[in-house]
């Protein structure tokens, strides 16, 4: 009887060893296949500004309380308009910095006089919530120098970006962390 028991245990061991070998092989094979397409650096999420339609979902769907998506200004593209349609309401009472004239709900765009007739517009990222209202305004009548980007000093880089799931234009994509921004007018690829 003890003889038989011993035999049984060793058979069980053999089976478990075999299964373990198969598991190791499977895991090793998977890792081997994956290894050919592994990169040392991380990937990060970014918005392709040429696909973005400024729908406003970025402001609401980020996992952070205040979205990591902010408006970014490419000054080289900007027309420095006095009547900036990204800054002003469609029919402003006056072309001044009065809150009632501004399009931005948080007053995150700073307007400053440069020289006649040019004005400079800068984004205060502390205030910006990424709603994209100014982006739509600038694209409608201006040069489109205002656009949305994920700011990586804020973004927590979720494995599946919660905004990308609801983005209607498919503008969210993973990019290499060594080139984390897609600046409008400077893509040149």
């Amino acid at each position: 009887m003890p003889e038989k028991d011993k035999d049984k245990i060793s058979r069980r061991d053999f089976i478990s060893n075999t299964i373990r070998g198969v598991c190791l092989l499977g895991l090793g094979g998977t890792l081997g296949l994956v290894a050919t397409r592994t990169q040392a650096g991380d990937t990060v999420w970014q918005i392709d500004p040429n696909k973005c339609i400024g729908c406003g979902r970025c402001a609401d769907h980020c996992v952070l309380e205040i979205s990591a998506v902010k408006c970014v200004h490419n000054f080289a593209m900007c027309g420095y308009c006095k009547l900036c349609t990204g800054y002003f309401e469609p029919q402003p009472n006056a072309l001044n910095t009065g809150a009632e004239n501004q399009l931005c709900p948080t007053g995150a765009i700073r307007r400053s006089f440069v020289e006649h007739p040019y004005y400079e517009y800068e984004i205060d990222e502390e205030l910006c919530v990424g709603c994209g209202k100014c982006v739509v305004g600038c694209n409608a009548f201006g040069n489109g120098s205002l656009f949305l980007q994920i700011r990586h000093d804020v973004c927590v880089n979720c494995n599946e970006c919660a905004i990308s799931v609801v983005c209607p234009s498919g503008a969210f994509k993973r990019v290499n962390a060594s080139k984390p921004y897609i600046l409008k007018g400077e893509e040149g690829e």
Binding site: V44, N50, F75, E122, N143, G144, H152, C155, Y181
Partner: peptide, 27 residues
């Protein structure tokens, strides 16, 4: 995006330097 370039970027007489678009690096 590129079909709209309605207002050509100005050439400032006062020598105004364009601000840099900041690009905060990822973690």
């Amino acid at each position: 995006a590129f079909s709209v370039q309605r207002f050509p970027p100005p050439q400032f007489k006062s020598g105004h330097v364009l601000p840099e678009t900041t690009q905060a690096p990822p973690r």
